[in-house]
């Protein structure tokens, strides 16, 4: 049997490696020059575009879209001159703009809640009871939006003599402003988590599914300010529905000595467009 062994020549290997490094350097130089040339002569990809459409070539600060049947006791509203013709304003006594002129004005601002009654059933001590519903917003006709939430009071026994306090989470620090993890079943109360689109996932908000907050309490000595649960500074344009949806997860846990009975409260969600 003949065995052929090939031992690489060190000099050849070093020569090849040198060639390779040199080639790489030349490639880098050529690439850099190419980028330079592309950068000099290529048309730039700009995110924002000019208003070229005939129907939206509008540059007046004050104008009227004639939408929503605006009327006056003395004049029907046609067009208003705004800054370019203050006389028109003086003769009519007003100038008016309804809807955002830069967005398709026929799209209304919409808000939906898919379940208005969150039934926790029979609450069992030291055991989380969790329910969910969905909030959906379509702000196609508005520049952006926010949804705030506030409860009228903590969960309260029908007879009004006992309450399930708002949750303070695992480290007993969470409030209506500060969200914290809540996974331990020996921590009691009522709280909520948000997930989905247009929610704040910062460290002090709904970082993940274990982070819970209290609802702002309207019945507190000084009523707590409703807190933002969904927000977007632009229009909702996610295809195909052009809506934003977020899930609210409600969680309750009671101690063994919690008074028996049915508890209830209500939560108010307010959806407003940006100005």
């Amino acid at each position: 049997m003949i065995i052929i062994r090939i031992y690489p020549n060190k000099k050849i290997l070093l020569f090849l490696l040198d060639c390779y490094i040199a080639k790489l350097f030349y490639c880098f130089l050529i690439g850099l020059l190419s980028y330079w040339v592309i950068g000099l002569f290529s048309p730039f990809m700009v995110q924002a575009k000019n208003m070229d459409s005939d129907s939206y070539h509008i540059q007046m600060g004050n104008m009227n879209m004639g939408a929503g049947l605006p009327t006056s006791t003395s004049y029907n509203l046609g067009i208003t001159g705004g800054q370019t013709a203050p006389g028109a304003f003086l003769s009519s006594g007003y100038q008016l703009l309804a809807g955002f002129w830069y967005i398709k004005t026929i799209i209304p601002f919409s808000f939906s809640i898919d379940d208005l009654s969150i039934d926790f059933g029979t609450l069992t001590s030291n055991q989380f009871s969790t329910k969910t519903n969905n909030l959906t917003v379509s702000a196609g006709g508005a520049g952006g939006y926010q949804v705030t939430a506030q409860e009228n009071q903590p969960l309260t026994l029908d007879s009004g003599v006992a309450t399930i306090l708002d949750a303070t989470c695992d480290d007993t620090t969470c409030t209506e402003i500060l969200c914290r993890p809540w996974t331990e079943t020996n921590k009691y109360g009522f709280g909520f988590n948000m997930s989905g689109e247009d929610i704040d996932t910062g460290d002090t908000k709904f970082k993940d599914s274990t982070y819970f907050c209290q609802f702002a309490d309207q019945s507190a000595g000084t009523p707590e300010t409703p807190q933002v649960v969904m927000s977007k500074s632009g229009v909702t344009r996610d295809p195909p529905s052009n809506t934003s949806t977020a899930q609210v997860t409600y969680q309750v846990n009671i101690a063994g000595n919690q008074a028996a009975g049915d508890y209830e409260n209500y939560v108010m969600f307010i959806a407003t467009p940006t100005y």
């Binding site: 809807g99 209304p108 208005l116 379509s138």
Partner: peptide
């Protein structure tokens, strides 16, 4: 037990002279 409302227009901008009235229809 569900809710679905929509509103138009989402914004009204108006400049008015004192003593005047305007009306705006909301749907």
């Amino acid at each position: 037990l569900s809710l679905s409302l929509s509103l138009w227009p989402p914004i009204l901008e108006a400049m008015m002279i004192p003593g005047k009235s305007i009306t705006q229809a909301y749907t």
